[in-house]
Write a protein that binds this DNA or RNA. Structure first.
Length: 467
RNA sequence: GGCCAGGUGGCAGAGUGGUCAUGCAGCGGCCUGCAAAGCCGUCAACGCCGGUUCGAUCCCGACCCUGGCCUCCA
């Protein structure tokens, strides 16, 4: 049975969805003011994995992941660029979708934009006001009254007093309590604004996820996820708003993924140490990026280094080398496959333990290599099993030969084939010195030649070394 | 300062109270015209100090170190 580490309780808990036919998943997506970086990629890949695995377990899943298309950063960036904020957002959404597709992320079932749900946010805020959980400050902004929600701090494991003592909470005269957070911002001149009972303005950040998740999923939501940096205050505030407004439990399992690190630091826009997804895709193929991210447990930090990426690429080559040249599988053989499948499932059931599951895939690859000479059909069936399990990772979906040959770097396939034929003639004539010289020529061009049994020789591209 | 997470072999990275993680790298062998790939074997670790235990990397306590959150953030 699937066990999930629930941030709220900081324990492993058996996963029991409210409705197994429609598991409700909400993930906080991205703010569309700039291209996404590898930190976002990790979030996308991790929750893609979660949803894929839930579906593999037979659950029906309704996966909602939002787009924040109105906020301070968007307004500021749009002003810098001299374009309307919604125009900038639209452009970034398109680019985000390109990134998503390139990474092989299955799109969510629903991808709501904040600006399409302003009405829902207003009515939610209105409800909070009615219940005394919100108030209007002297600056006309609407704030959530944290004091009215005793459970505040439960998710992130903080106590109100500790937070108030925290040196980094700024004093704001318009708030009753420094912990109160904004629900609705009164419009300033020139800013995008929507009409509301409190005057024209725009939503605060946290409210959108409460409003959209409730609008698109029934409460309680089974799984609500996002990056670890959203744990506090964003998700804490979501809980407060949502539960104060409805009086019902908001989320059952909270899942937070760890960071991508550069050196000793978290990769972040504000640190200036980021690499965008599209920049990364110029240097690494999508499967390498995915495997790199999944080779660590989702809650652990993962380091962005050339060495780690090269390692991921090597791992992938090992898998594809095992799959290369297998006969077409004739069908599934449960007796052969079941033991591997159950080991894989045991790993994944343990809070999505991808490194452990990956070890199973490596063992499977070794078994394929072990039996391929004597029992090609068995090897082929195992290969089909390997591919099936790897699909949960979004990996090994390519043709092995195509992957190994690559297609983006260096010399043309035609030239390589010419050289191969030339070399083959030399070999057949026993002119090994010449054959070796051609091998070296190819190697210098990034092409690795592998002589197989009999006459067949194969080649593959070595990826450009990742410095 | 408060809170959270973590410190595992050369590197990456799981895990367990007492026989195997896994991958890369290394070493030895097999295979190969050579090589690559592959297979077999092999080396090697659990931050530090105490405690519990027949036995601890795994449990408890102290300490040291690292990262994160407390402000926008995946």
């Amino acid at each position: 049975m699937l066990q999930i580490f629930n941030t709220r309780t900081r324990r492993m808990e058996p996963f029991e969805p409210t409705d197994p036919k429609a598991v409700r998943v909400y993930v906080c997506g991205v703010t569309v003011y700039d291209d996404c970086h590898l930190g976002h990629a990790r979030m996308l890949v991790v929750f893609d994995l979660v949803v894929r695995y839930l579906r593999r377990l037979g659950y029906g899943v309704r996966y909602v992941r939002n787009l924040t298309d109105i906020d301070d950063k968007i307004i500021r960036r749009a002003a810098e660029l001299g374009e309307p904020f919604d125009h900038l957002a639209r452009r970034m959404i398109d680019r985000f979708h390109e990134d998503q597709e390139a990474l092989g992320i299955a799109p969510p079932d629903v991808e709501p934009c904040a600006t399409a749900h302003i009405e829902a946010m207003i009515s939610l805020i209105d409800r909070l006001c009615t219940r005394g959980a919100a108030y209007q400050g002297a600056n006309r902004d609407i704030y959530f009254r944290v004091a009215r929600f005793p459970a505040y701090g439960t998710l992130s494991g903080r106590r109100l007093e500790e937070l108030r003592v925290g040196s980094r909470i700024g004093i704001d005269e318009t708030k009753e309590d420094p912990l109160d957070f904004v629900l609705w911002k009164a419009a300033k001149p020139g800013e995008p604004a929507w009409p509301s009972p409190w005057g024209s303005g725009r939503p605060g950040w946290h409210i959108e996820c409460s409003a959209m998740s409730m609008a698109l999923l029934e409460l309680p939501i089974d799984i609500h996820g996002g990056g670890q940096d959203l744990e506090f205050p964003h998700h804490e505030n979501e809980v407060a708003q949502s539960e104060a407004a409805t009086g019902r439990p908001f989320v059952r399992y909270w899942i937070h993924n760890g960071f991508v690190q550069v050196g000793e630091d978290k990769m972040a826009k504000s640190q200036g140490n980021f690499m965008t997804i599209r920049e990364a895709l110029e240097r690494y193929d999508p499967e390498t990026l995915r495997l790199w991210l999944l080779a660590s447990h989702y809650r652990s930090p993962v380091a962005f280094t050339g060495e780690n990426l090269a390692r991921a690429r090597s791992s992938l080559e090992r898998f594809y080398l095992a799959l290369r040249g297998l006969p077409e599988p004739v069908g599934v053989d449960p007796a052969v496959f079941a033991p591997w499948e159950s080991r894989f499932a045991a790993a994944m059931d343990d809070d999505f333990n991808t490194p452990d599951a990956l070890a199973v895939l490596f063992d499977l690859a070794r078994e394929i290599n072990r039996v391929r000479a004597e029992d090609p059909m068995r090897a082929s069936r195992l290969g089909a099993g390997l591919r099936e399990l790897a699909r949960v990772f979004g990996l090994l979906g390519s043709d092995a030969e195509v992957f190994l040959r690559g297609n983006r770097h260096g010399v043309s396939d035609e030239w390589v084939e010419d050289q191969m034929r030339e070399r083959q003639r030399s070999r057949e004539a026993g002119r090994y010195a010449e054959a070796d010289r051609i091998r070296q020529t190819l190697l210098d061009a990034g092409i690795l030649v592998e002589d197989g049994p009999g006459q067949q020789a194969r080649w593959r591209r070595r990826p450009p070394s990742a410095s």
